[in-house]
Amino acid sequence: PLTPADSARWPVPGAPEPLPGAVMPESRIVAFYGNPLSKRMGILGQIDPDSMLKKLEDTAMEWAKADPERKVMPALHLIAVVAQGYPGPAKKYRLRMTDSLIERVAGWAEEKGWLLFLDIQPGLSTVEEEIPHLVKYLTRPYVHLALDPEFAMKDGKKPGTDWMGRMDAVEVNHAINQLAKIVEEHQLPPKVLVVHRFTRNMLTNASQIRLDPRVQVVIDMDGYGAPSGKKAAYKWFVVQYPVQYTGWKLFYKNDKPLMTPRQVLEVYPKPMYIQYQ
């Protein structure tokens, strides 16, 4: 049985050992989520870039102090493909961010020595169709990937309606394979793949996700609300379906109260990826 000391390596027996250059478990990732074009999608776009970068640095330090055993790798988590309420020219209900926007945020990460996550909300498009457009960024050592099943619409349902999207292990495995290929071809350190989850149905067949040592998979608990509800969601939708590492999302606006690093670190297993929206 696993003990709290194993928490960082939680949970899966037989998961690949980290390769040299892997971010986790040596470092915990602390990410700011959002998009500079919107003040409503998360802290990344909510305040001016200088204050945001300073706030991320301060927040990362809080985490480093709360768990002195572990370094903290700050990250900018950009929604690079944004689900839309309108079909758009391709009728895919998603908007791809321009190169200049992605480069702007990449520049911040590059300058600081931090990570950049590119998040895909597919809308009516697919993971398979969107990844190729991000490859030119993913070949950089600091750029990683995230998938948002909530906005991966199935059966032609439109995002932003009562219908919740979902993703299957097949799509996650496709992303893992693409990332592994990029790591191999460009001799890069392992990539991190974050998959958001806050219900049972939004990620199907999680037990069939096939781990690869070149890709570290995080299932990120991204439910909001009171700490008790978040803990329950973590237990039922993340811990119940172990994949590799776990993540925990914190909402400045919708969490009441906002949990402190110390409080989050009381959950088992300890999340290795922390995101602030």
């Binding site: 640095e57 330090m61 480093a64 002195p68 903290v72 790798m73 700050p74 020595g113």
Partner: peptide, 11 residues
């Protein structure tokens, strides 16, 4: 690019 993680100061 070089990674620059943040570390807690020594006590």
């Amino acid at each position: 690019w070089r990674p620059r993680p943040i570390q807690a100061p020594l006590p």
